[in-house]
Amino acid sequence: MFGVLFEQAADGQRYIDWLLSGLGWTLALAFFGWWIAFGIGIVVGVGRTVQNRFFALPARLYVEIFRNIPVLVQMFLWYFVFPEVVPSAIGDAIKQIPPPWASFFPALLCLGLYTASRIAEQVRAGIEALPKGQLEAANALGLSGYLTYRHVIVPQALRLIVPSLTSEVMGIYKNTSVALTIGLMELTAQARQISEATFQTFTAFGAATIVYLCLALIAYQAMALIDRAVRIPGSAPATLPADQDLSGEVQQGALPGAMEAAK
């Protein structure tokens, strides 16, 4: 069924090479976008929880703006509108960027900033779920606000939200497909191109679907491993009742039920 993928395309490459090149862009976008999102997400999420309005208000504004505009619209804003609203010298420089990068950077910015707003809300929820005594104990030891967040609050909050961050990881790599609308030849775009060149629509998108599914599985497993690696010794797995001790080490609690069944 997938034999057609190994045939040679008009440019001398095989169709599977198109697909792999698309996968490369998808992964690059998701990977670098994630780190942007994670970094900004932590800062903004912390900002949402501080008393100081100077930090809290911009953080709130950030989340409201980036979370509530559709990804597709944000993609267009960064690609079409942004170069027009900045000073023309900068705008012209942006327009001079050669093809793959001219789409890649706006897409990266778009996905990074959008996902950051979602991560920020998770981080805020994690921080607010911590017992108040943690903050009090840190205060009582004379730790400053920054040191308290850096060494006491954030490390615990992040551990708490690893399971829910899994869906953000899934989210950012699935949203990479939106980048095809601004001309980035990522996985979905390549699948469409194969479909147009070969008229094998089912094969082309079937292959892309399988690749996306495999990525999902890998992401789930990776996050489950991370969850296990950062779990605090002696603490019960957050999502499993204590009596269901899975040989002490294996902690599958972070996986949703459907994934458990699939294993």
Binding site: G133, E136, A137, P155, R159
Partner: peptide
């Protein structure tokens, strides 16, 4: 020293 210890669990 607090009633609920408030050690840093991590």
């Amino acid at each position: 020293v607090f009633q609920s210890f408030n050690l840093f669990p991590h």
